[in-house]
Design a protein around this nucleic acid. Structure first.
Lengths: 368, 368
DNA sequence: GCGTGTATTGACACCGGTATCAATAAGCGT
DNA sequence: ACGCTTATTGATACCGGTGTCAATACACGC
């Protein structure tokens, strides 16, 4: 049944061995080496490594044998040059929180493992004059296969526009859908805020305060609105006087905490829009000699390391940032392939983790 | 004085304008476009972009004009293919602490800014069977220009050997010199440990304990030995019974702290080999109802975020990790260029930051 | 036996740069 | 004016893949 002239497996292996010993300078094998050994044209090798169906199965087998034997791996640069794209995924971010950045990176790397793609990280500064040009030239010069963009740059429509212009696949991570769903991983921060609100309401808090993030950040708005919704389900209102403005930094949380504690009457619970600010609130309470959770409950958002390092450990809302990175990577690799598997999740839901910084308000403190 | 036939600046600009309007599909300009516009061969363009001295100044000027006008930028992939290397820097790491990873990344990125190089991140697992092959294929396939390796993989000689084999420039970050100095950024953790020891001794502590990291980590040994040296300068000894074994995690610090506190007599000061463990020690003291710093001083190492999030804020030894990343990147880019500027610092020194978790021992507690 | 369709393969140009080496022009001493 | 340097430039191959399209072999229907 063998095609005429088909050489035996052994013949190929011998040839490979000979090649290996001849290969004095120990060069990496190229497609030409494989082609020569197999006695076919390089185009056929190209077909094999690209899993093209247009190859005779027995030919494919022979070639695969040789590839495995001499350890040939196609050169991404050469391939990229011909194809006009690279095997690199970019991550564009401006979130200053190291934990967040690393989590998402890890998730992306999880998704990239074994695919031959590599991750190029690219922080940016939206306030810079050259922000858009920088991003464009990064993506264009590297001919990135795709990029994932995290909050808050992900909310920047100009960047999204640029990415579309240079025809680069992208996935944006954000708290709400800004784009066609296939281009987004949405984290639903509103639901997280709602959980925080319900949690405090269920514990019996009535005088509730909040430290918000910058209004220009979508996540900050979502978390706040969600929080109000959660409280609203229990007919509790977030009074305007009980809202302090922060900017997601520890220091701003410290200041906001001091401010809220000073109110008369003081709140019995404070929800901070992220853990950093929550840690600031906790520290300001400690400084003021206020006991947590007896006199004041504090709830954060993120569940980063800090949440368990401070005392009491922080009740917080966890958003699965590593998982999010993973989904983003999968999404990106999915593009261009079959669109059949639409079952990709691109929504994630945060989840409240109840630790020791929140509890029922003490007797009498809630005499509204 | 103008060379014969030299076209005027305006002529070139006109040609460029014409080119831009002709360029229907808005392609990125290539070296061929520039060559055509300048009326010279692509090799000459190549010389200009590579700052070769073998170009007539006036020719160079003309070409530069055109390059700027149409916004030509050489394609890194094509260049890389021809040169057999890429314009990518790799970072190979296995340190699980997000803060450290991000700091070093940032530092490297600082050093890469404006150079056209990009950073590819590559975590690894030394315990994996395929660790070395993974690393090799990463570096080899991507033809990395260079890599920076952080602790503790940086201590792995097998990896260094692989990097040399594939002829890839590398810089290792480690607590002591393991390599020729040009290939290292050394952090001198021993000096940091010494500072911690002297700090506690100067405060008057006599019964001093330590939480160490894994003995297999060089930094853990250095920090410990430095600490003992520092104490030694004041004739204080670190008694074997006062040493608890940790593994750089918060949880291990928590356990070690509980263990040390239970000793009789208990130590009046504990030095933990990193902030995570120090935070654990602090938390275990809080749980045991021990006041810091009155009854117990705690000193950490790293000065990561956690150090200021906990209460009292942690006295700790700061190693300039971002700066270290910057130096590593500079070093890498320096390779192959003039070796004249040997003035590159490749040693950094940690520095003690005295916060509120350490103070003089309380009266009578030191009746040795 | 012949036309036609299908499966498989290869020749060749091309992606956008760089290296080699030869070609040409200009400068200079005598 | 001539030979010899030196300065400047270009023709061409090459890096290691991919796309296009034509060529070949074979099966099938009639």
């Amino acid at each position: 049944m063998a095609k005429k002239k088909r050489k035996s497996k052994k013949t190929f292996l011998d040839a490979c061995r000979r090649w290996k010993s001849d290969n004095s300078n120990n060069r990496k094998p190229t497609i030409n080496d494989v082609a020569a050994l197999a006695g076919v044209s390089k185009k056929t090798i190209s077909r094999v490594i690209n899993a093209s169906p247009l190859v005779n199965p027995s030919t494919r087998e022979d070639i695969q044998l040789i590839i495995d034997e001499i350890g040939y791996r196609p050169d991404p640069q050469a391939r990229g040059l011909a194809l006009q794209r690279s095997y690199l995924i970019g991550m564009i971010y401006d979130n200053p929180n190291p934990q967040y950045v690393v989590n998402v990176q890890q998730g992306i790397l999880d998704g990239l493992r074994g695919t031959g793609f590599e991750l190029v990280v690219h922080p940016c500064d939206r306030k810079s004059e050259t922000f858009l040009e920088d991003a464009r030239s990064f993506v264009e010069l590297q001919k990135l296969y795709g990029v994932v963009v995290t909050p808050s740059v992900s909310e920047d429509e100009r960047l999204a526009e640029v990415l579309r212009e240079v025809d680069c696949q992208y996935v944006r991570i954000a708290s709400v859908a800004l784009d066609r769903d296939e281009r987004m991983i949405v984290t639903n921060d509103r639901a997280g805020g709602r959980d925080a609100g319900k949690h405090l309401a269920e514990l019996g808090h009535k005088r509730v305060a909040m430290v918000t993030g910058r209004r220009s950040f979508r996540s900050a708005r979502e978390r706040r609105e969600g929080f109000e919704e959660g409280l609203g389900e229990f007919d509790i209102e977030l009074a305007p006087g009980y809202v302090a403005q922060g900017n997601y930094t520890f220091e701003s949380g410290l200041a906001a905490g001091a401010e809220l504690i000073d109110l008369n009457p003081p709140p019995t619970a404070i929800f901070a829009a992220n853990d950093e600010m929550a840690a600031g609130v906790v520290q300001s309470a400690l400084i003021a000699g206020i006991n947590i959770p007896d006199e004041l409950s504090v709830v954060g958002f993120d569940n980063f390391q800090t949440a368990t390092r401070i005392w009491p450990r922080l009740t917080t809302v966890e958003s699965p940032s590593r998982q999010i990175g993973l989904l983003a990577a999968r999404q990106l690799l999915q593009f261009g392939h079959d669109t059949s598997d639409k079952g990709l999740h691109n929504h994630t839901t945060p989840k409240l983790i109840w630790r020791k910084s929140s509890g029922a308000p003490s007797e009498g403190s809630n005499n509204t």
